[in-house]
Amino acid sequence: MAEVMVVTSGKGGVGKTTSTAALGAALAQAGQNVAVVDFDVGLRNLDLIMGAERRVVYDLINVANGEARLNQALIRDKRIDTLYLLPASQTRDKDALTEEGVKRVIDELRGRFDWIICDSPAGIERGAQLAMRFADLAVVIANPEVSSVRDSDRIIGLLDAKTLRAENGETMEKHLLLTRYDAQRAGRGEMLSVEDVLEILSIPLLGIIPESDEVLRASNVGSPVTLNNAQSAPARAYLDAAKRLRGEDVPMIIPSQKKGLLDRLFARRAA
């Protein structure tokens, strides 16, 4: 039974694409057949994060409009056999997407994969609404700061109103993934705490991804963070989140980087 999952946030730059790639890779590493679909038509990034930008021939728009077959557009990951990317078009815009076209692509993907992960564009307009339209569950990305949390609240409202499941009266499963979390700064009151965010959004927590240089390092080499360095703190947090998505009961801990004595001394001075 295929699961269509949308990764969305409302606000831009909070880590939707990073999380799509990391969760997709983590699920594929666990043996699942995974397709990650970039819905950010005109501003595609997922191909870069996945390191597939040199192999893009056809894209989501071509398949949705019947100009190419799904097999021609899907790009298989070089590192994991069960991970595929369906890129967005960079030369078109969101108006090129039609609901019928998206439905046809999603239905075809459902027949081939265990997980279809839709990377939503920022905003609440057509692109974001089509990315969530046919989803069975949603991962809402938020940073621990007020503007991101309010935008996520807005997106949760849309998930409960504009998706096909919501319109059919079914419940839309929603999970919160808190990214760029810094336990020390939250402790000092410089950012919202996990409890604050959960109280405002009141949806179950899927995971807490710590703020880390590893994320930037991985995206610069075009690799999902879980593949680039599986031992890093954010990678372990994403791998735990992927296990929770599959129904495993994993205790919620905030992984931290192992630090030597010198690191601790310098970190203190730098902060």
Binding site: I124, D151, D153, R154, I156, G157, L158, D160, S202
Partner: peptide
């Protein structure tokens, strides 16, 4: 019986 979300 549900939270009223931002924008609603």
């Amino acid at each position: 019986e549900a939270p009223v979300r931002s924008g609603q």
